[in-house]
């Protein structure tokens, strides 16, 4: 699975240059320009792709690393109410 991550990214970069919708002013559902809809869709696909990359190509040497004891349990996640 790891080996297909980078070819997939290259494919997405190629798909970003969508010359096939370049001059197409079609409105999907009467309001959504098809060129914009395509790129909004590409953003969602990008999120899905990066989820796949995180699951399948995460660097194992970093996954194994634990939080340092000095910081454990003391997250700066959110201010106290």
């Amino acid at each position: 699975m790891r080996s297909i991550v980078w070819p997939l990214l290259a494919l997405l970069v190629i798909l970003h240059h969508d010359f096939w919708f370049w001059n197409d002013p079609t409105l999907v559902a009467g309001w959504f320009p098809i060129g914009l809809m395509y790129h909004v869709g590409l953003s969602i696909v990008a999120a899905a792709f990066w989820l796949f990359a995180v699951k399948c190509a995460w660097p194992t040497e970093l996954v194994d690393e634990q939080p340092s004891p000095v910081n454990a349990g003391d997250s700066a996640e959110a201010p106290q109410a």
Binding site: H17, F19, F21, W22, N23, L27, G30, W31, F32
Partner: peptide
């Protein structure tokens, strides 16, 4: 929905596509 449809249909077709955008600029912005 009707408002979005009315707003989109009033726009010039050139603004609903990229016909005025040079390919080389689009590529460079990557």
């Amino acid at each position: 929905l009707e408002s979005m449809q009315a707003a989109s249909s009033a726009v010039a077709p050139g603004k609903l596509s990229r016909e005025a955008m040079p390919h080389r600029i689009y590529f460079a912005f990557l």
